[in-house]
Lab assay of single mutants.
Amino acid sequence: HMTFVALYDYVASGETDLSFKKGERLQIVNNTEGDWWLAHSLTTGRTGYISSNYVAPSD
């Protein structure tokens, strides 16, 4: 899985979204569905959809 880092804080707007904080590391589970990616937070252990605009590759 690809690992990304959050560029900004994000508060989930629905049950399927994932809230995260700036600097949080996220593993991308599925990024084939446009701008919203299914991600797993390595910080909180939660999984949900994130906006690809809010993250950048961590490598």
Rank of each mutant, 00 (worst) to 15 (best):
S52K: 15
E15G: 08
R25V: 15
E33L: 13
L18A: 04
L7Q: 05
V55H: 03
I28W: 02
G14A: 14
N30F: 10
Y8M: 11
D35R: 08
G45D: 05
G14W: 11
F4T: 03
Y8C: 15
E15Q: 10
D35T: 12
W37P: 01
A12G: 11
N30W: 09
T32C: 13
D59W: 13
L26R: 00
T32A: 10
E15K: 11
V29F: 09
L26F: 15
N30M: 10
L26N: 00
L38P: 01
F20Q: 00
R46Y: 07
E24H: 03
Q27H: 11
V11S: 09
A12I: 03
T32E: 10
D59K: 08
K22T: 06
Y54Q: 08
I28T: 03
Q27W: 14
S19D: 07
A56I: 14
H40L: 15
E15L: 12
R46C: 06
E24G: 00
V5M: 06
V11L: 08
R46M: 13
Y54F: 12
L7N: 03
W37C: 04
T3E: 11
Y49A: 02
L38G: 00
K21I: 08
G48E: 02
D9R: 00
L26W: 01
A56G: 11
G45A: 02
K21L: 09
T32I: 10
W36V: 12
V55I: 09
V29G: 04
S13M: 12
T32K: 13
N53T: 12
P57I: 11
G14T: 13
L38D: 13
D35V: 09
E33T: 13
L18V: 04
W37V: 07
E24R: 00
L18K: 01
H1N: 13
D59C: 14
N53G: 10
K21C: 14
E15I: 09
R25N: 08
S41T: 03
E15W: 07
K22W: 04
N31Q: 14
L7C: 09
Y49F: 10
Q27I: 15
Y54C: 15
D59E: 12
S58I: 15
R46Q: 12
K22P: 01
I50Y: 01
P57Y: 10
H40R: 14
Y49M: 09
I28G: 03
A6D: 00
N31V: 12
F4N: 00
S13Q: 14
F4M: 09
R46G: 06
G14E: 11
A56E: 11
W36G: 05
S51W: 15
W37T: 02
A6F: 01
S19V: 04
T47D: 06
Y8Q: 09
H1G: 13
T3M: 13
I50V: 13
G23I: 03
W36T: 11
L42Q: 06
S19M: 05
N30H: 11
V5K: 02
M2C: 12
V55R: 02
I50G: 00
T16P: 05
S51F: 14
G34S: 09
I50T: 01
V11Y: 09
L7I: 08
Q27F: 13
D59L: 12
L42V: 07
A12Y: 02
N53K: 15
E24Y: 03
S58Q: 12
Y8I: 13
S51Y: 15
N31Y: 14
L26G: 04
V11D: 12
D9A: 04
L26I: 09
G48D: 01
S19C: 05
Y8E: 09
N53Y: 14
L42G: 02
K21G: 06
S41V: 02
V55P: 03
N53I: 14
T16Q: 13
T32W: 08
Y49N: 03
G48T: 02
L42S: 05
F20R: 00
V55C: 05
F20T: 01
E33D: 14
A56W: 09
E33Y: 11
T43D: 15
R25H: 14
Y49D: 02
N30T: 10
L7S: 02
N31A: 14
I50M: 03
R25C: 14
G14R: 15
S13N: 11
A39P: 00
G48N: 00
W36Y: 13
S52A: 13
A6M: 03
